[in-house]
Design a protein around this nucleic acid. Structure first.
Length: 202
DNA sequence: CTCCAGGGGGCCA
DNA sequence: TGGCCCCATGGA
């Protein structure tokens, strides 16, 4: 199984090619964002929502000069709702954005002194209302740049199609990849990106 | 018109 | 845990 998972990555890579490079971290990244914090915002806004709609909401925030930690925390809920409305579920997401932002700032501070274990980081994020496993893992991988494998609907379909693997829980899928691959941030980022590229064409 | 998109929470058995 | 409903917009 381990070999299959690595060879499937090679196959996707030859089919779709590398994603764009992120000059800030020198890693291959697929999540489009001008800052790590923008990844956090996008991770909340994209919940059960087409990315195109997320882009509109992000553009609204940028045009209003609101795409920063302090700005989000200082902006009223009604104003936030108006700005992110195109991404849908705007009432929930306005509140979730504030909660996620507070935790994000807290974790960035702690990181300097403690240096979190990845799973500790995950549990911290999961304690926030509005952050589930997929959102937490997306933030860890694409905003904190720490190795954890992100599972989404595409990944489940991919496992069925390529490995005939079906599991019940999110972590069953996550551990399948993590136990079969070197713990490499760049690899995890790119593999997930390639699976999504594959999924969009199927 | 229907269906779904880069989910998650709350409730209930 | 597993099933079900709710949240809401915009594009196909």
């Amino acid at each position: 199984m381990k070999k299959k998972i690595l060879s499937a990555y090679e196959k996707l890579l030859s089919q779709f090619g590398h994603k764009t490079r992120d000059p800030r971290h020198g890693t291959v990244v697929w999540w489009p964002a001008d800052s790590d914090y923008e990844v956090v915002v996008g991770a909340i806004l994209t919940q059960n929502t087409n990315w195109k709609n997320v882009e509109k909401a992000l553009a609204n925030l940028k045009n209003a000069n609101k795409l920063s930690e302090v700005a989000i925390l200082d902006t009223s809920i009604p104003e936030l709702e108006t700005l992110i409305r195109p991404s849908g579920f705007y009432r929930q997401k306005a509140e979730r954005l504030k909660l996620a932002t507070k935790k994000w700032l807290e974790l960035k501070q702690k990181k300097r002194t403690n240096d979190f274990d990845v799973l500790e980081l995950r549990n911290e994020l999961l304690s926030v209302k509005g952050i589930g496993k997929e959102t937490a893992d997306s933030i860890i991988l694409y905003a904190f740049h720490k190795p954890i494998f992100v599972i989404d609907a595409y990944t489940r379909r991919f496992c069925k199609a390529f490995f005939n693997f079906e599991a019940k829980g999110y972590d069953d899928y996550r551990l399948l990849f993590e136990s079969s691959l070197p713990r490499d941030v760049k690899l995890f980022k790119e593999y997930h990106a390639l699976i999504v590229e594959w999924g969009k064409q199927n």
